[in-house]
Write a protein that binds this DNA or RNA. Sequence first.
DNA 1: CTTGACACATACCAACCGGTATGTATGATC
DNA 2: GATCATACATACCGGTTGGTATGTGTCAAG
Lengths: 201, 201
Amino acid sequence: MNASIKTPDLTRQKLLEAAFAEIHRNGFQAASLTHILADTGLTKGALYHHFPDKKALGLAVIEEVIRPQLAAMMFAPLADTQQPLAAMQALLKGKASEPDPWVVTLGCPLNNLMQEMSPVDEAFRLQLNSLFEAWVGVVTAALKRGLKSGEVNAAVKPGDTAFFIVSALEGCIGMSKNTQSVAAYRGCLGQLSHYLDTLKS
Amino acid sequence: MNASIKTPDLTRQKLLEAAFAEIHRNGFQAASLTHILADTGLTKGALYHHFPDKKALGLAVIEEVIRPQLAAMMFAPLADTQQPLAAMQALLKGKASEPDPWVVTLGCPLNNLMQEMSPVDEAFRLQLNSLFEAWVGVVTAALKRGLKSGEVNAAVKPGDTAFFIVSALEGCIGMSKNTQSVAAYRGCLGQLSHYLDTLKS
DNA sequence: CTTGACACATACCAACCGGTATGTATGATC
DNA sequence: GATCATACATACCGGTTGGTATGTGTCAAG
């Protein structure tokens, strides 16, 4: 009856991606299961076969969609780098030169969910915090290698600095989303890059 | 029949404050008018007498609750200062020494609404952006005075720097909200203060 | 060939949502 | 003292929500 007969993991993936898009636009609480199902062409039977409830779907989106995205975009470029500042500035420059239109209009999916769900649901907060701390951890480790290699000023405290860098980046994205101007986005990233300069030895 | 017989502006104020609290906790879209009315002890008749619809209530909260709060907390300390960096660092120190528990658990009301509503509703985005740009404007003006007074490094571009400062601050608050630790909040504010040091001449 | 688990589709439900229509007590105006 | 707008309260409504119960076709195992 169906075009692609019985491909459960593909169905699950379609649900995850549609849910991600809907959540990215409207947030989790305002995300409509009906809309998600309309986008996929599936029905509630499929959804509730793969996920026990809406919350589980949201948590799965964090773990199976957002986490890999973030790992590819933000974690990978910093892995094993001995010059973390240069690597991050290259990353920022890439983001500034060809800004993802989705990011400027809809913001960072991780940050969006953190702002919305952290005060509301503890399970969400813990899952999001795990991902966030992974990010901070990656930056911290990179900064430590930079300290060893001599790129980073010896006065820099890797943990606090990494937390601030990620926070400032999320802040820049968030404010630019509200302004909805790529110019503001570029300017803010430029200032962040300028801040990274002050960490050099 | 009522305790305080016919006090329309007081009633309106109670609605605004209850709406602010509900929105601060759950966001605008998830904010329930029923909850707001239950908190105030009022009914829908009162609500829809003072506000045409939910959206108008939300916009009024921004203008009549959040804007004055922000003006008192963030704008006033920077008004007419010739040493903006010192003033902002004093502000941050005050926030770090006795952090508002509501801010760490629920975040900045302005930022919460920006993240949630900017992509969803244009009227909200414009109103929020107006408030946000007022904030950036205050910081920009302060930095310009600092340039004249010699406190601020001549290489500093006031507008871009102000945008970044506000963004970084909102980022710090947002990330700390997710972490729900005052220690992280303090650390992030400390790094922001450290960044402000690099702007000195 | 039968059986049974899997992978969905369909139909349905109670709860809640924002919003409205109507009723009513109060206070000022003339 | 009658009139009338104001300031609410009460009752109700259609739509949407997340969730469930049941039906059905497919496929693999025995």
